[in-house]
Write a protein that binds this DNA or RNA. Sequence first.
RNA 1: GGGGGCAUAGCUCAGUUGGUCAGAGCGCUUGCUUGACAUGCAAGAGGUCACAGGUUCAAGUCCCGUUGUUCCCACCA
Length: 871
Amino acid sequence: MEKKYNPKSFEDKLYREWEESGCFKAVRDDKKVPFTVMMPPPNITGQLHMGHAMDETLQDTIVRFKRMQGYCTLWLPGTDHASIATELKIVEDMKKEGLTKADVGREGFLERAWKWKEKYAGRICDQLRKLGSSCDWSRLTFTMDEKCSKAVREVFVNLYKKGLIYRGDRIINWCPCCKTALSDAEVEYAEESGNFWHIKYFVEGENFFLEVATTRPETLFGDTAVAVNPKDKRYKHLIGKNVILPVVNKLIPIVGDEHADMEFGTGVVKITPAHDPNDFEVGLRHNLPVVRIMNDDGTMNEGAGKYCGLDRYECRKQLVKDLEESGLLVKVQPHTHNVGHCYRCGSTVEPIVSKQWFVKMEPLARPAIDAVMDKKVTFVPERFAKTYYNWMENVKDWCISRQLWWGHRIPVWYCEDCGKEICEKQDPAVCPECGSSKLKQDEDVLDTWFSSALWPFSTLGYPDDTPDLEYFYPTDVLVTGYDIIFFWVARMIFSGLEHMRKVPFRDVLMHGLVRDEKGRKMSKSLGNGVDPLDVIDKYGADSLRFSLLQGVAPGNDTRYSDAKVEACSNFMNKIWNASRFVIGNAEGRKVKPLSEVKLCAADKWIISKLQSVIRDVTLTLNKFELGVACQILYDFTWSDFCDWYIELSKPALYGEDEGKKDAALSVLTFVLENTLKLLHPFVPFITDEIYRELPGASGTIMLKDYPRYNSRLTYKKDAQAFEGVMDIIKAVRAAKTELGCPPSKKVSLLILTESKRLISANRESILKLAGAKDITFINDGAEAGEKSVAKVLHIGTVFIPMGELVDIDKERERLSSELEKVTDEIRRADGKLNNQGFMSKAPKKLIDDERAKLDKYIAMREKILEQLKSL
RNA sequence: GGGGGCAUAGCUCAGUUGGUCAGAGCGCUUGCUUGACAUGCAAGAGGUCACAGGUUCAAGUCCCGUUGUUCCCACCA
């Protein structure tokens, strides 16, 4: 083994080997239980960020764990075409060449898009490899692959025929920059400071006016009424009359509608059905005309008269000026309000009436809610179910058409002769109505999330009845960030139920965001993003992985910090060196199996510790508590195995007794091998690299059985007794430090104890680890003499003659404080045991433990008192 | 307006069926070339687990309230 832990020297090599030998491949096996995870397909917009790294690491860890446990694991990788996001990128890219979409045309554009896909999807897959992702590359899927497109077509047509997809004029969110409709989920709201412009709307034939407050004065051209509350005494007599629309000088009616809030503003609200969702509803109730006054690019249309062609904000500016000049502006009030922005480009979205395709949500939402209620799908942590219900219960119809080119084209054709709308699984050649061959396909594409929603089954071959689908669906766990519950998780659930009649996954493990060191979101604009590849380059993938898991609780955000990765890298180094120690010592010797050696107390102690680690790690992993599992392994490896057991094994290893040497070596090897296996799902590279060096090991660790708890290896009594030996070592070390005794100076130990055999058996270990030169058993504390320090322990009292270093007063002080501590413990235990309620209600084991503790402490108190007396 | 999260050592955070639960990493103090590792070893200092109640034999751990902070959803023109 190399002297230094150097991840670069083996990570890529190992990954290639795994991949080439087919370790990641999921081969259906009816004798095995399947375990399926669908990778949330990263967008092909660029490269992976820290959030992805965490997402993939979580999945990989779970998948590797299950694979080692003997499941037939499928982790299916893929990438997402990310319709709008990618299209934006490509448009940006073309701009550099001075080209626009119009210049290259639909065909030309798609050609570029596919080239883009080849480049970026490939790059993303390489990054996934760097992270160590053990996904089945043979099943790599792209959301616009043939099979996904087929699924999309199937689903669209089915929903269409069921009447769950319809086309209509509705208010949708329009991004004037991307020039497409957006779904509600794709709009992000942000507080912005704006104004309330109070405008005079004169009542027809009167010389008074209604004061109307608006935040978007330019929409005035689309006003087709003003509304007042029918209960509003100030205005209700005016209902039915008309007002004169300022500037336009058109008459529009005053309607009575509950929508007008008497308490808010002036109580009069202008109604612009074409440009406001609420107004649209009002318009429907009062049968008002819908007048669109804006173009797709955010400029004003002919409806705006002389302002036609102006950008919406320029129009606002000029209109306000004109209103002011003509005395129609009452006042301007500063006002902060929430403004919707496109989640891709950040432009302010405009609510606009437009003819779009929608999925009717109500019939789909109900079963999806029930599935979670009935625990067919479980959110981890549970609280996210609430978020899900909240959204599902209030969800509006889903706008799925996008005025883009990159994506699944809507499979609807229109007959140019008779106007017939055709939606079939096969492309129509002629109109079934009139036989005309002049058919034109809908120009729009589908929302990216429409295909993502089908991911758990489209990847497995739906709508065909494939063996994969039969075997691997429903999937087991979906791992993703809480930020896409609405976009994706919810939509997969109702889609799975609707099209497969089964939920798409049983558990949803949510994780939070990876923030920067200061707790800020990582973002391009802040420039605070950390590239996972840079980190891997510097520290290795294992260190990055471990740092992303350690101390992270499900659903919680976490902070990335170099310091943390460094700490993890130190841990890797620790594993490396401990292994080097074990392997080095095994060199040239035959390592015997555990059953053929005589185990000493320390051996039994570490072996039973290992058993409890196996039990706890398995338990926590099954509950998706990866952060806790990491901690357990970290502590065990570093503290128990390295700091204690390896040190304890040295006397035997360097001694003359071949039997002891054999035992130590076989225990070291046994524990190391198991530890590596336990760690492998978290840190796959280093564990496999070391595993291959292990005496007797062959093949890759990733296909070995995960350690199983073995109750025959718990040695409970011996292990517990051995902790008494460790107490002695700790006490002597502490005493030496307290008295300023140099560590190199060996001390003598006089021990008053009833556990002479145990201590004798571990004499060498105590001498070495405590820095002592000899041990003498005594029968009376007086034998130790005055110039010694007494450490009263459960196992007995240890006297350390320190000569002139001993200060009697300080020693008395120290013992007194120990006495106080012990007395406190006695008081506490005594109190509990005398508590009627505790005695009658607490579990028996607890009472017994408490009683045993009390006895121990009472004995200790006696010894301390004795010792104090003798000073 | 509605719903969450968080508040534990100087800093970043674990602590999931209430019972050694007061922890880890980093930082800090002291001392160590202890035959795997100074990416290390040993010994320490440091917290009334936000505040105020309640349930319980027993509460960082469950319930109610308060304060601070943060996120999501809805949205009044």
